[in-house]
Design a protein around this nucleic acid. Structure first.
Lengths: 245, 245
DNA sequence: CCATAACCTGTCACTACCGACAGTTTTGCC
DNA sequence: GGCAAAACTGTCGGTAGTGACAGGTTATGG
């Protein structure tokens, strides 16, 4: 078991500093624990493929290029399947659970990756998927006890690191997202439109005239600064103004 | 500092058992650490108010009712503001940061809540907000060192407990969410429709005829089993078939 | 070579949506 | 009481969306 004090020193740093650079965090992690490599990835899953928000790691610089050349499709598939995971997953377990990722692991072996590592899930907004991969420099036989001992450290520090990055992103953006306020009726009407109801149907449901439904929808379109009901529903869902379900 | 072994015993339980009942988890937590009270809450934020998915706690049984009677609006506001938090937050800090929650704290004091506690953020899908509140039975002067010592334990165990609940929810539902596959063109036209473009505009953008755009949109509607373009966009956004941005 | 899927196009008739005109009634707050 | 905002209604004319008809082209894989 590694030095307890070293963890608490690192915890103090992560809690006190507002913005922690990835390189610094990686260096601190490596000096505190017996870590061989770290990889942080934050992507947005799109209907086709994905968009990388942030990717930083301690592997050789051209690792992403090699992965991309090998098979981008399988990265996509694995990210998609794993995006729902909430528990930490061992690299070995991940390899078994997602056979599609075998190509990735084969490629990663050439960069020095060993099975003694863990994938930590990180909180992320909708359609975002963030992970911190930690690969330890321990013998296979020692991995289980090492993991058991440091899982709590890794998960907390990873969360704090992730929070630090997201917060600095938010500070950089510094853009407040419109904050449109819809009335009760406007929200209701939008919700029913999202459910595929026509003006006449919504009017019947709400017990008002079709003309009034149109009035609310027009106001909603004007407030959302859009030109069609379809766009209005999309915009309202983006800003969480109408429920998903 | 509490017994290290007790934590690892609890960790083993949380990692080995698929479904951990809240009452059991709470009891284990209380017997392992000097915990006075625990509260787990998982809500969905709606445009107006919120919907509670799960709420369990060790306070007196009528705590939620008292809260509701006091001021439901402020719960709403605080949940909304705090939903973006990723870091653990001390109860005292939360009270200072969200003045709107003062009424809540005043009410909670009557149920035995003390400021020596922490709010742990938990991974949640879009518009969902889950938290585990842990209130320790320690003297105010000891809180800082207690927190520092056990934060990593709490965060990891809370994550595992949360994962356990979500997984059992998923098992209970046992419903695969359609998994509709849209073609490239169908995805494109849906995306432009969500951007407020008309058939004619989309046709011009994509360099095809308006009729063809209608063809793709009709196929998309059929696949998504919906009756209007508006509903199709809403459905596609729900299933993450078109990007948010 | 045939089947399949994706992509592409045309016409017709009907319905729904959209903006702009001009109001009334109700509700809540100072 | 006065005021503002929300809720509600009516009519008109133009544009957009919708379903059903009936095709053709290209690429992929068995």
């Amino acid at each position: 078991m590694a030095d307890q004090q070293a963890f608490f020193d690192l915890l103090d740093i992560m809690e006190s500093e507002r913005a922690v650079e990835p390189k610094r965090f990686f260096a601190l992690m490596r000096s505190t624990f017996n870590i061989e490599n770290l990889l942080y990835i934050d992507v947005e899953l799109l209907p086709r493929g994905f968009r990388v928000h942030r990717l930083c790691h301690t592997f050789e610089a051209d690792l992403p290029e090699v992965y991309r050349d090998r098979n981008a499709g399988c990265i996509d598939a694995v990210l998609r399947m794993a995006s729902g995971d909430i528990r930490p997953v061992d690299l070995a377990d991940s390899r078994k659970r997602y056979p599609a990722s075998e190509t990735l692991f084969q490629a990663a072996l050439h960069f020095g990756l060993t099975p003694e590592g863990i994938i930590l899930p990180l909180s992320a907004p909708a359609r975002r998927c963030a992970r911190l991969v930690i690969q330890a420099d321990v013998a296979p036989a020692e991995w289980a006890s090492y993991r058991r001992c440091h899982l709590r450290d890794f998960q907390l520090l990873a969360n704090l690191f992730h929070a630090s990055l997201l917060e600095s992103d938010a500070r950089r953006r510094d853009q407040h997202p419109a904050s449109v306020i819809l009335t009760n009726r406007e929200t209701e009407v939008l919700g029913w439109a999202a459910a595929g109801k026509s003006y006449w149907e919504i009017a019947t449901i709400l017990g008002i005239t079709e003309r009034t439904v149109r009035f609310f929808m027009t106001n909603a379109r004007r407030k959302l600064n859009v030109v069609s009901n379809t766009q209005a529903v999309a915009q309202a869902m983006r800003h969480a103004l109408i429920p998903v379900s």
